[in-house]
Computed example of a mutant assay.
Amino acid sequence: MKFKLIMGCLATLSLAVAGTAHAQEDAEREAIAERLKPVGELCLEGEDCGTAAAPASASADSGGAVDGAGIYNNVCMACHESGAAGAPVRGQADAWASRLDKGIETLYDHAINGFQAMPAKGGNPNLSDDEVKAAVNHLVEPVYDGELPQVGGGGASEQAAASGGEGEGGEGEAAAASDIDGEAVYGRVCMACHDTGAAGAPMLGDAEAWAPRLEKGTETLYDHAINGVGAMPPKGGNPNLSDAETKAAVDHMIEAAE
């Protein structure tokens, strides 16, 4: 009788442990899915940017400070909200402690010139140094002890190019993929992951990594790029891209791999 009672208790305990393990696995999967949700928006040349370009930076003529939050949202948040490629997440004090110990000027230098998996200027070479510094200020502000250096106005012309401020509404949507500079789209949106291999992205020009993907056919690659697959969010996390622009960027990557 005692033996049966003991065995019953052990069975109940095993079920409870298994249930807890499954619950933890579900929670982890949900957390990963949340981190991989598409984040950030870029406004590219040729698009009707509307309000997307507004937060980029203040006008140099007005003498206003650069809007670091706007630049962060447009360029940096795709990695620094998800932790892609080991990027420290905004607001996580533990992740930033050792980096902040190096000083804000070192962080500026790393952001401007690139550091390890992070490309220079977050993969957007059109940003001015001041714009990058303003984005860094916004990035570290929640965990920074003290007053951050003030970043003055300027770099508005560079940011206009980065945000597509020169575009006349909606041209990208109407253009065929063959008429779009896929290399330029890649340089503004895709290179942050495909130049570094972040989150398992096949690197530009790595024929071996691309071989099994190319076997699936161009249309499948287009579909994956437009709608997302695995860790890659739809349109590289930039919902403002047209399908044609996304396909042009894919064509550029395919050409480099063949």
Score class of each variant (00 low, 15 high):
102 K>T: 13
64 G>D: 07
210 W>V: 00
14 S>R: 08
142 P>Y: 01
119 P>T: 04
146 G>M: 08
164 G>P: 03
193 C>P: 07
202 P>L: 03
123 G>F: 01
117 A>V: 14
220 T>W: 06
56 A>D: 12
221 L>E: 03
69 A>T: 10
197 G>Q: 09
167 G>A: 13
82 S>T: 04
183 E>P: 05
240 N>K: 13
75 V>A: 06
204 L>T: 08
237 G>F: 03
75 V>C: 11
147 E>Q: 15
50 G>I: 04
136 V>N: 04
258 E>G: 10
139 L>M: 12
139 L>D: 04
74 N>W: 06
231 A>L: 12
90 R>D: 08
16 A>N: 03
177 A>V: 05
24 Q>I: 14
233 P>H: 05
47 E>R: 09
68 G>F: 06
211 A>T: 08
100 L>A: 05
108 Y>D: 10
79 C>Y: 09
214 L>T: 02
120 A>N: 05
63 G>I: 04
255 E>D: 15
40 G>E: 04
47 E>F: 09
76 C>L: 08
219 E>L: 07
258 E>R: 14
150 Q>Y: 14
30 E>H: 07
98 S>D: 15
157 S>H: 14
153 G>L: 09
56 A>E: 10
172 G>E: 13
60 A>Y: 14
73 N>S: 12
53 A>P: 03
67 D>N: 15
116 Q>R: 14
104 I>A: 03
111 A>C: 04
205 G>Q: 11
78 A>M: 13
167 G>R: 02
119 P>K: 00
14 S>I: 13
121 K>D: 00
97 A>G: 02
31 A>K: 13
144 Y>R: 06
85 A>T: 01
247 K>W: 02
150 Q>L: 14
153 G>F: 09
146 G>L: 05
36 L>H: 11
23 A>G: 10
66 V>Y: 07
242 S>N: 06
101 D>M: 07
241 L>G: 04
69 A>K: 15
107 L>A: 08
76 C>R: 07
252 H>Q: 02
2 K>L: 10
132 V>Y: 01
216 K>E: 09
199 A>V: 14
96 W>P: 06
164 G>V: 00
4 K>A: 15
84 A>G: 01
245 E>N: 03
50 G>V: 01
67 D>Y: 11
52 A>L: 15
23 A>Q: 12
210 W>N: 06
33 A>H: 06
124 N>M: 12
33 A>G: 03
136 V>L: 02
28 E>P: 00
85 A>W: 00
154 G>S: 08
52 A>S: 12
147 E>L: 09
133 K>Y: 01
95 A>N: 03
21 A>P: 09
175 A>T: 09
173 E>Y: 13
